[in-house]
Amino acid sequence: MPEPIIKLENVWKIYQFDKVELAVLKGVTLDINQGAFIVILGPSGSGKSTLLNMLGCLDLPSKGKVFLDGQDISRMSEDALAQARGQKIGFVFQQFNLLQNLNALENVMLPMIFQGRPEAERKKRAQSLLASLGLQDRVLHRPSELSGGEQQRIAIARALANNPEIIVADEPTGNLDSMTGQKIMEILIDLHKNERKTIVVVTHDPIIADYSNQVVHIKDGQII
């Protein structure tokens, strides 16, 4: 059995508010294997976003361990972790999180800048990614000039920029109408089927839950 890409080992996340402690994750253990399509389901406040942040190495656990490609992330320097995150994980957010003062092309090129890719290569890849998502006519538009669905597709192109092994999506259809949302989900499914990407999605969408080969239910900070 190959090593999981991301491995959570008895992960706790505890927030401290003055004297009150709030445990959002309570001992979660989870393996994300190569090629999996994982859906995380749970009511709001169940800790699913916190879990996703752990999987995306955006946050460090209070207790327990997170391994990215076999490496304990709490032992990595912040810079090394940022570098590894940029290379191995692509993010898709509910609010798209595009940089408003950059155009579509520049937004997609951004993660490649941080990996030190040469400009010609960056531009070529960004253009082909945008074209493959049907955005060839939107390359020089700013996010504010685009519809929600278009913005989310740019965000997906950005997530794919460094050809990461894993895509982490936090309610990617939450801010979209159902038609557009369905298209976004189809793109994610396509990435899984044809590009062999590992995908982790937090969603309420029943269709995507049906497609998934691994559904993780979380409640009160625990996987059930």
Partner: peptide
């Protein structure tokens, strides 16, 4: 702040 968060998520180092 949010923009900085995005930059970090997509791989920007502190020094960057």
């Amino acid at each position: 702040t949010r923009e900085i968060g995005i930059l970090k998520a997509v791989g920007a180092k502190n020094s960057t």
